[in-house]
Design a protein around this nucleic acid. Sequence first.
DNA 1: GAAGGGGCCGTGAACGTTCACGACGCGAGC
DNA 2: GCTCGCGTCGTGAACGTTCACGGCCCCTTC
Lengths: 333, 333
Amino acid sequence: MPPGPGPGTPPRPATIKDVAAAAGVSRQTVTRAVNAMPGINDATRERVLAAARELGYRPSRFGRGLVVPPTRTLGLLVEDLTNPYYPELASAVLRLAAQAGWNVVLAERAWAADAAPAERFGAEVDAVVNFTARPVPGRSDGLAELPLVEIDPENRESAQGRVDLDMSAAVVAAVAHLHERGVRRPVVLDLPHGSTRAAAFVAAFADRGTSARRAPTATTDLAGGLATAERVLREVPDVDALVAFNDVTGFGVLRALRLAGVDVPGRVRVLGIDGLAIGSFVTPRLTTLALDVPLVARTALEVVLALHAGTLAPGEPGTHRRIPYRLDVGEST
Amino acid sequence: MPPGPGPGTPPRPATIKDVAAAAGVSRQTVTRAVNAMPGINDATRERVLAAARELGYRPSRFGRGLVVPPTRTLGLLVEDLTNPYYPELASAVLRLAAQAGWNVVLAERAWAADAAPAERFGAEVDAVVNFTARPVPGRSDGLAELPLVEIDPENRESAQGRVDLDMSAAVVAAVAHLHERGVRRPVVLDLPHGSTRAAAFVAAFADRGTSARRAPTATTDLAGGLATAERVLREVPDVDALVAFNDVTGFGVLRALRLAGVDVPGRVRVLGIDGLAIGSFVTPRLTTLALDVPLVARTALEVVLALHAGTLAPGEPGTHRRIPYRLDVGEST
DNA sequence: GAAGGGGCCGTGAACGTTCACGACGCGAGC
DNA sequence: GCTCGCGTCGTGAACGTTCACGGCCCCTTC
């Protein structure tokens, strides 16, 4: 056999023309065979399919997408799938999107490092839902942005659509709940530089005549919650409630209290924020500010699909939605 | 203004020709402006970009994919993202795939109901990793299958590539560990119809002269573990170890023991299977059979990319990989 | 003043697929 | 025998983009 790229094994993927040539028919006949269309003899169909299998032919989604109404693809951007906060929403989005006939390409925020993944992502997608602390980087080319909905963009401005997660009413309810159970010396875990959610709790306690202390936590993961809770126990021995920064932090708090032999909720009551499904995994089950995650997913998808379809323009009412947290009483308070 | 589709708002998405016409230039000039290519006057570039923004133009990924080397897309199929077993692997796959320049479209197994999502998925993807109990349905057209790697396909046959998860050595190690700590009356949670993993544990205990009882659990979630553990405590009061069917079941077992006031690991030792990262959330931290999840992801990706590139053919050695579990000792044993 | 060169821009072709339409052969019907 | 119709198959065009190439204009240079 001769060296070099002979006709034996072309590295180039087989195209419809190759199949047509191999089967001795025309492109259109190959199309008819592959797409199970009528108007083709059974014998030729078999012959064509055999040739297609032989060549490993698979129709190019690009060539096809150019002609037929293409399947739409949604880009979903999350912070970190390892954080149990995100898979719940991702799952809900996946299901609803599939129902609407959309595919979903998922990406974790690798944006930070280099722009390559962002570019790639942005070029392969018809609309974006961003569930990330950072904004989506604008296009490096000077083009129109693609339909974008941000979930819980905090105080950051987002031009197109947004789904705000409103904690205010739930915070009041949670504080009322704690206060009724006799909490008078609460400590609220906070970020080192302060946070809106901690401020909301402090304010709500103040409305009831109770002053809440803040305890900055270096990290908001399990280790952070654990370390901060241990510190609080030393510095504020008579603490009777701990408000965690989120559920995962809350798990760390629970562990610290367990290790210290402190009864929950007997001596210290613990409140989480997130309402994670895995909250039910720990004992005692965490009282938390929960979110109707499927509703969040449904709302975000609704807005972004409307933006894509053009039935909703970036400025219009309806592009900014608001979903309240609710108090979900578990066993830890 | 006249009714009908006037030139004001064409529902059809703007194409490069529209931009060219609006800016009074040619297609190629639009390409140069949009792709930041040299050989174009700054003034015209601005004019073109303005027109593009005005028309809401975004280049079609199909038209582009036809010409330039297209970005590849991997389809990742998982059972249920809500089950904490899957996000860890999904996350690892996402990162490695992004590193290799691939996008990932994720899908939960909605295959069951109708074939529509499967068709859509299959047509938009260059290769598939299946991490699901069921096999991927073959193509309805008679074409060649696309590159496919199955993770832990149990006893099911898979033609192309597979990554087997091997529990045998870890089971022996775990049983040795338990036995050394004095376990003599273990109970192994099992599926109603039996399972290979439960059988492996029973056999390993038998090798050490200890007979393990089996306790069928209706479901393998938290509630199932809880209910089964409660039943075991009643029926086998002197049980000194419980082997859960997986980690989530193990969390239910821990909760049941906690509620019953049984000390872990003092009186009863608990073993999980999965090595979930969230295992560190519960107290005591679960001893478990853990998996190097990033390694699984890396291996699966390696095989499927090689299959796609053609450097590996379905039958060859190297398409079937084997990754062992290892014993991860926590606090529950 | 003519030749040369650089900056800027446009024209045909190609990528792989499907749609609309036309062509061919064969049997039935008048 | 001629036409009609049906079953089967092929040919041009189009989708939206980029690549290779060629053309124009103006400025520089000898």
